[in-house]
């Protein structure tokens, strides 16, 4: 899975997890806060992302995640373990 594919799939994944957001406006730079995701929502989001993309997020590395791109980059850098 190339980076563009990952970006598309992550955005599609996030669109299925948020409420009261125009999903067509979600892009890599979208901040979690503007997507209405509080700190507990982000923990749930990353748990679901692990299941969906077959990666394991390390606590130390995700604590500063604040936008969609952080997830895309993380999956891209660990894509050997991600499903194609």
């Amino acid at each position: 899975m190339n980076t563009e594919n990952i970006e598309e799939k992550v955005i599609e994944f996030i669109a299925s997890k948020v409420d009261d957001v125009d999903v067509s406006t979600i892009n890599a730079t979208s901040e979690f806060e503007e997507l209405g995701l509080d700190s507990m929502d982000r923990v749930q989001l990353l748990f679901d992302a692990e299941e969906t993309f077959g990666v394991t997020f390390e606590d130390d590395e995700v604590k500063d995640f604040h936008c969609v791109k952080d997830i895309i980059d993380y999956i891209s850098n660990h894509q050997s373990s991600a499903p194609s």
């Binding site: 997890k17 409420d19 929502d41 749930q44």
Partner: peptide, 8 residues
């Protein structure tokens, strides 16, 4: 229910 409510 909304997506987040269903998950919670």
């Amino acid at each position: 229910l909304k997506n987040k409510q269903i998950e919670q």
